[in-house]
C-alpha cells in the first residue's frame, strides 16, 4: 500500500532525459512550473501541453505510470476544482439551492485543474528520470554559489540524499515489524481512531529504535571513513555539462520565450 505512491519515484530506463545533467532538469522543472503561471488563456495551454507531451515522449516512461502519481492528490484536485467552480463570481450558467455555477467559474476551474495536473506531472518527470543521488548532486552544484554566504549547501544536500535513501529501507522495516507484531496478534486494522493510534505503539517504538540504530551506524561508518563535511571534498563522478545539456538550456529558453510571446500575439490577432 505504501508502495503505490509514485510521486517522487525513479523509473529506470534509457532516454535522453535520463542522461541529461540534473542541473538542466532542475532548471527545466523550475522554468516549466513558473511558465504555468505566465499565461491566462487557452493558447498558453497549447504551448505548455506541446512541451509537456514532448517531454513525456522523450522520457520514455510509460504514461500510465506517470498518471498513477496523480491518484495521491486526486482529493486536493477535486476540492480545488469545486471551490473554483462555485466561488467565482460572474455570468450565471446554472443555479440551484444556494450554489451558482458561472461561466467564469467553469473556465477557472478547468484552468486550475490543468495547471495542477501539469504541475504534478511536470515535477514528476524530473524525479522519474533522475536518481535521488543525481538529483541531490545537481542541487548541491547548482546552489554552490550560496556557500559563499555561509549557506551549508553540501550539508543540506547530504542530509537530503541520506533521507531519500532511507525511505525504502524504513518502508521495508515497517513492513517487517508490522508482520512480526501481527504474528503476535496485533491488530492494525480495526477499532476507532484512538484505539488505532494506541495500537500503533508496538509498531512505532521498534521503528524509531531501528531508525536511530541505523542513523548511529551510518554516522560511525562515515566518521570511520574520515567524513568531515564538504570542504575540499571531491566527487568520483563530477557533474560536467555536455552538448546535450547546452541543447537542453536552449530548448528551455525557446519554450520560455514562446510561452510569453505566443499567447499575447494570438490575443492581439483575435482582438483585431
Amino acid at each position: 500500500m505504501l508502495r503505490d505512491i509514485t510521486l517522487g519515484q525513479y523509473y529506470q530506463t534509457e532516454s535522453v532525459l535520463h542522461r541529461l545533467d540534473p542541473r538542466v532538469k532542475l532548471m527545466g522543472t523550475l522554468v516549466f512550473l513558473i511558465s504555468l503561471f505566465l499565461f491566462q488563456n487557452f493558447t498558453g495551454y497549447i504551448v505548455a501541453t506541446l512541451f509537456l507531451v514532448s517531454m513525456i515522449a522523450l522520457s520514455r516512461v510509460p504514461v500510465s505510470f506517470m498518471f498513477k502519481g496523480l491518484k495521491a492528490v486526486i482529493i486536493l484536485l477535486m476540492i480545488t476544482v469545486l471551490i473554483n467552480l462555485f466561488a467565482t463570481p460572474g455570468e450565471t450558467v446554472v443555479s440551484f439551492w444556494k450554489l451558482t455555477i458561472t461561466k467564469e467559474g467553469i473556465y477557472t476551474a478547468l484552468f486550475m485543474m490543468f495547471r495542477l495536473i501539469y504541475l504534478i506531472i511536470g515535477s514528476s518527470i524530473m524525479t522519474l528520470t533522475t536518481t535521488p543521488g543525481n538529483l541531490t548532486d545537481g542541487m548541491e552544484k547548482a546552489l554552490s554559489p550560496l556557500s559563499h554566504i555561509r549557506v551549508p549547501v553540501h550539508e543540506i544536500a547530504m542530509m537530503m540524499s541520506i533521507a531519500l535513501s532511507f525511505i525504502p529501507i524504513l518502508l521495508d522495516e515497517t513492513d517487517k515489524i508490522m508482520k512480526a507484531q501481527m504474528a503476535r496478534g496485533a491488530d492494525f486494522e480495526s477499532g476507532n481512531i484512538f484505539r488505532r493510534v494506541k495500537n500503533m505503539v508496538p509498531l512505532l517504538v521498534p521503528l524509531f529504535i531501528s531508525a536511530f540504530r541505523r542513523a548511529n551506524d551510518l554516522a560511525l561508518a562515515m566518521e570511520a571513513r574520515c567524513y568531515r563535511g564538504g570542504s575540499g571534498r571531491t566527487k568520483m563522478k563530477p557533474l560536467k555539462y555536455h552538448l546535450r545539456d547546452l541543447a537542453g538550456y536552449v530548448i528551455l529558453a525557446v519554450y520560455l520565450a514562446a510561452i510569453i510571446v505566443v499567447p499575447r500575439v494570438v490575443d492581439k490577432i483575435f482582438v483585431q
Binding site: K176, I177, K179, A180, Q181, M182, A183, R184, G185, A186, D187, V201, P202, V205, P206, I209, S210
Partner: peptide, 30 residues
C-alpha cells in the same frame, strides 16, 4: 495467527515495551 507461532528473523527488533515481562504479555493479551 496465534495457533501457528512465527518467530521472525532478528525477532529482538520487535521488542517495544518498557520491561521484559510486559513485552511477553503482549501476545497473550491480544
Amino acid at each position: 495467527r496465534s495457533r501457528v507461532g512465527l518467530v521472525f528473523q532478528y525477532p529482538e527488533h520487535q521488542l517495544f515495551e518498557e520491561d521484559v515481562f510486559s513485552d511477553v504479555c503482549f501476545g497473550p493479551r491480544n
